[in-house]
């Protein structure tokens, strides 16, 4: 395993770079998209709520692979050229945004509106209340699930291997094919994934516990 890790370090780490890049871009993208659809889901107009709800339900029930392959195969045939990395990142963004929308919607709904009224009644301005009362609570509610979504993204970004997206899994497959050493290659690839995801998942668990008791 270590020979693979050293001999193919440059390919593996470049793969890890693409994996992290795709995950980060998709995290930011799905945060924006997810917030948008969460706000739509609790919107004032019925049809806005329906659209928001429909988007979340549809995306949540379709495999990531189907969404990603759709972008890789269909979009370039008719609309615009997208390469594997882009198609994979868009697929990840759309897929994850549905889950983030759910997280944010339930987060917003769990912070009671009484908090804001209470803060205002003791003499805080709207912005003071927002920054000192609502924001700290909202962040504590939202950070752990978002961290877990990022871990999911790192794992799910292995979907890029299907569309020649140069990620860690793609490089692993190529190394396994050129060295014929399947077992050690996938051990090395697994180790690299764990180096990223394990500390993150322990950090998230720690934060969750700490903020829950606080």
């Amino acid at each position: 395993m270590f020979t693979i890790l050293f001999d193919h370090a440059s390919e593996l780490f470049s793969g890890l770079g693409y994996t992290l890049g795709a995950s980060l871009i998709a995290l930011i993208g799905s945060l924006v998209l997810g917030t948008l659809f969460a706000l739509m889901e609790i919107g004032q107009h019925k049809w806005v709520r329906v659209i928001g709800r429909a988007y979340v339900e549809v995306v949540r029930n379709i495999p990531l692979l189907v969404i990603t392959m759709g972008f890789y195969v269909i979009v370039p045939m008719f609309i615009v050229q997208v390469d594997g990395f882009t198609a994979g990142t868009i697929g990840l963004t759309i897929y994850t945004s549905a889950f983030i929308a759910e997280t944010i919607r339930s987060g917003i709904q769990s912070v009671s509106s009484g908090q804001m009224e209470g803060a205002r009644s003791v003499g805080l301005t709207y912005y003071q209340a927002m920054f000192h009362i609502i924001f700290p609570q909202a962040i504590k509610i939202v950070i752990p699930p978002l961290g877990n979504q990022f871990i999911n993204l790192v794992k799910n970004s292995s979907i890029l291997a299907f569309v020649a997206g140069f990620d860690l899994m793609y490089q692993g497959k190529i190394i396994a094919n050129s060295t014929f050493n399947t077992f050690d290659t996938y051990l090395a690839v697994g180790l690299l994934y764990l180096i990223v995801t394990m500390p993150l998942s322990y950090l998230m668990r720690f934060l969750e516990k700490k903020w829950k008791t606080a």
Binding site: S158, M169, F183, V189, G190, T197
Partner: peptide, 23 residues
């Protein structure tokens, strides 16, 4: 549990099909 949860399913699929035969 933590080990498995933090690996991509794709990798576990590969491992089960291609790497386990080695042992």
């Amino acid at each position: 549990i933590d080990l498995i949860r933090n690996l991509p399913l794709l990798l576990i699929l590969f491992f089960t099909y291609f790497a386990l035969p080695n042992i």
